[in-house]
Design a protein around this nucleic acid. Structure first.
Length: 283
DNA sequence: ATGGGGGCCTGCCGGC
DNA sequence: TGCCGGCAGGCCCCCA
């Protein structure tokens, strides 16, 4: 269920087990996810040490001491779980393998990282670290929403003249990289902008106001993910997705949470995705 | 060139 | 209980 905050939460959860760790064994249980795995992926991972574990948009990037970088995308249903000694006294045993455990990495230190993805919209690839920015999945991505390159000027310029609904524009990873359906709905509700409005017809002032709102929505989600991740891990060692309460997402028919607003949240399908919004607060 | 829709997959949930 | 339709947080590709 991964948008940027979930991917960041997973990355942070993987850090203690993976960063600096040597991969003793890589088990690849099928030839592909959304796309075929790269040639000899197991052999190229085995024996490699992870020197850094980074994130770009919704991609997790593991730099290896072999000069390659492992790219991981969770798609819609991808999960990564950690088991093994690094998690402490309760988890000496690895859990029973489950259906859809497609890739399993065992580290020399005794941790096991399992990639499970029922729908297989996820992806893994290996690329040269030196030229990673040119990778076909990375090269067209827009700025990181939490970075300095994502600012008022950028978003105003990106929306200028755009005929598509602002909902679609914010889901366009070339404009800003990492937002998905949920956080776009949440950010637009906070900003009071209708998801149906053409991007080019939102006033510059309102577009500018959207920038810190997007940052806040994501930062809050990461923060809440971080805390629930710790809890979750204490409980069973899994890197779960945090429980986050959304103001509009999934709340069709419920009352708008804006004080004094008496409207109900509506759901409307836009280019195949559900948008949740308040018809009174969002214009 | 740009925007919208189809398709990839499996699982789950509600209704009959 | 079983079957069926609808739905799911992503993203590439094709078509108009």
């Amino acid at each position: 269920m991964p948008e940027l905050p979930e991917v960041e939460t997973v990355r942070r959860g993987l850090l203690p087990a993976l960063e600096g760790a040597r991969i003793a064994k890589a088990s690849i249980n099928r030839p592909d996810l959304r796309w075929p795995f790269p040639e000899n992926m197991a052999a190229r991972l085995t024996g490699a040490t992870v020197t850094a574990l980074r994130r770009r948009s919704k991609y997790i990037l593991a730099d290896l001491d072999t000069g390659e970088t492992l790219l991981i995308h969770l798609g819609m249903s991808g999960r990564m779980t950690v088991s093994g000694d690094l998690l402490g006294q309760f988890h000496h045993q690895h859990p029973t393998p489950e259906k859809h455990d497609h890739v399993v990495l065992d580290t020399e230190a005794g941790a096991r990282i399992t990639f499970n993805d029922a729908r297989r919209f996820g992806a893994m690839d290996l690329m040269d670290t030196a030229t990673q920015d040119a990778h076909w999945l990375i090269r067209d991505l827009g700025p990181e929403p939490l970075g300095n390159a994502f600012n008022e000027d950028h978003l105003i310029a990106a929306f200028a003249g755009k005929r598509s609904p602002i909902k679609s524009a914010l889901l366009d990873q070339r404009i800003v990289a990492g937002l998905g359906n949920i956080y776009v709905c949440e950010a637009l509700w906070r900003a009071g902008i209708s998801p149906l409005r053409h991007a080019g017809r939102v006033t510059p002032a309102r577009v500018a106001a959207l920038v810190p709102i997007i940052r806040d929505v994501l930062a809050e989600a990461i923060e809440s993910g971080g805390s629930s991740l710790r809890d979750h891990r204490q409980a069973n060692g899994e890197l779960g997705y945090f429980q986050h309460t959304f103001r509009v997402y999934g709340r069709e028919g419920e009352s708008c949470q804006t004080p004094d607003c008496v409207q109900k949240i509506r759901r409307k399908v836009q280019s195949g995705r559900s948008s949740f919004y308040c018809p009174a607060c969002q214009r």
